[in-house]
Nucleic acid binder design. Structure first.
Lengths: 94, 94, 94, 94
DNA sequence: TGCATATTACACACCC
DNA sequence: GGGTGTGTAATATGCA
């Protein structure tokens, strides 16, 4: 995948590829576009799951928060919480 | 995937699920986490391609810009139609 | 851009303005653009304040959260909190 | 506005402000809330203009699209320069 | 510091 | 005509 060259070198690999290989660039761009499409597609799937959860009577933002909190390390979460508490207390918020 | 329910309803679907089904939530959270992991993984693959391109002597930011521009062009093209429709509708054309 | 016609009825007020007044549209667009610019500018000012807070040794995201929480009505805040707690407990999160 | 301190420093600026100054935080929060109120207010003004346009017989979504397109065009134009710079740099031009 | 992602808010369209 | 759902645009945060 990394070195498909068969014949003579299409690009010298020198400096900034002054004689640019359009073929090679197209290949990279194509790969990236395919991957980005897949990525986007999965994003849609995730959205679907939230929709499904909502249909089942759950609150989507809360689920989202749940996922987010689980992703954070426990320490980090605790740290953020403490900080918020500290500031809240400082300005007299309940 | 959308309707896995086999037995009796675990949650009544009333209001905000006062008796919350942990099982159900876990299922949603699990699905989402799996999908997000896949999504993240693809992100890494994309990064790999950029790295590969760089190794081949290409300038990654430029490739990135190329991809971005192509995406915009595609969107723009696809937008032409809806834009036309919008304006048509606005002036009272069916 | 479309047709800045000078004479004849500028806007009949009938239906969808089949004979569109470019002058009038320009006026609306101009107003909106000016307002949006102001809005954007204020956005930058807000960002500045966060930067300033950060420079003073405060944690910007926490300040942000503080502002956000204050904006929400107390009931709403409590509701969200309860919901999160409920779901967390349901899936066995501490 | 940036340095309201009169007497001795209320917070040492060390780490994350372990002894948090509620006064200072309140000041930041207050500023932000004022600015956000202004921002919100301008948002309402913008909405008013759209309503006004609609009353004059224009189609709001179309006007909105117009504004959006103009903004994009402006960005695009401004981008030309940096794009040129980018490509220039990529092929080794100073 | 800029880029990419993730969340939130808004506006439009449909349905009741 | 009001409310809901959906899709899109602005905003914010985290990362490289």
């Amino acid at each position: 995948m990394a070195k498909p060259s068969k014949k003579l070198a299409e690009e010298p690999g020198i400096g900034h590829n002054s004689q640019v290989s359009g073929t090679r660039i197209k290949s990279f761009v194509g790969k990236i576009e395919r991957l980005e499409e897949q990525k986007h597609s999965i994003g849609l799937d995730i959205k679907d799951v939230y929709t499904e959860a909502k249909s089942a009577g759950f609150d989507a933002p809360t689920i989202r928060k749940l996922v987010s909190e689980r992703k954070k390390s426990a320490e980090k979460r605790q740290e953020q919480y403490s900080l918020f508490e500290l500031y809240s207390a400082a300005i007299g918020m309940a």
